[in-house]
């Protein structure tokens, strides 16, 4: 049942699903705005531990940037009806997403190994914030991976021939969004110390 397309003059308007995704990104921004402003408040109070971020967060940045490029190519290929290239790049994007999330977890372990507790009574809020903010972002990336897996399943099913690019575009908006969000969070964590 898709009534979404059934407005008389929708050709001049954005597809409602894409529009919904844009508002959803605003909503996610507010959640991270809540966390980062809590972080600012905390960082101005005493007893806020100072330490440098693990190097792997910079490497994971490269990975997520690459994944944005592959997502871009995947969408282009879908629109050009190059199905094989689309399948290849959507798979690559999903894999890079998983690699990114794994690297973030490695980053957490790095901190723990250097004696900076993220959780537990010995933890400092400065470190716990890294876990919450970076971890929540990684969960959002994994959410994107799930969406990509659904796309993946659709792309490899031979029964359904679908030329509607809207779902792919919606996922692509989300994917670029979590990428930009990560750049913001990284800059935030680097500069607000």
């Amino acid at each position: 049942m898709n009534f979404a397309m059934n407005t008389p003059h929708n050709s001049t308007r954005m597809h409602p699903h894409k529009f919904t995704m844009w508002i959803a990104t605003g909503s996610i921004c507010m959640m991270f705005a809540g966390l980062t402003s809590a972080y600012i408040v905390k960082s101005n109070q005493e007893n806020f531990l100072e330490f440098s971020l693990p190097i792997i967060f910079w490497l994971s940045t490269l990975v997520i940037l690459t994944s944005s490029a592959t997502m871009y190519i995947a969408l282009k290929s879908f629109k050009a009806r190059m199905r094989n290239r689309y399948r290849l790049f959507i798979t690559l994007t999903a894999l890079l997403g998983i690699v990114f999330a794994t690297m973030q977890v490695v980053g957490f372990l790095n901190l723990e190994n250097h004696g900076i507790a993220l959780v537990g009574y010995k933890s400092n809020a400065a470190a716990s914030f890294i876990l919450v903010i970076v971890g929540l972002h990684a969960l959002h990336v994994l959410g994107g991976v799930v969406a990509l897996l659904i796309m993946f399943a659709k792309a490899f099913s031979s029964k359904i021939k679908n030329y509607n690019s809207t779902p792919v575009e919606v996922v692509s908006i989300y994917w670029h969004f979590v990428d930009i969000l990560w750049i913001y969070l990284l800059m935030f964590l680097v500069f607000i110390r």
């Binding site: 909503s27 809540g34 966390l35 537990g120 933890s123 919450v132």
Partner: peptide, 25 residues
């Protein structure tokens, strides 16, 4: 709702960490 509920959610996440994972937010 779309702009304010996520902020409550982030407050809840920190509360969950304090309750269950021994953090000190």
């Amino acid at each position: 709702g779309v702009l304010s509920f996520p902020v409550l959610f982030s407050g809840f996440i920190l509360l969950i960490f304090d309750r269950n994972f021994g953090t000190s937010f």
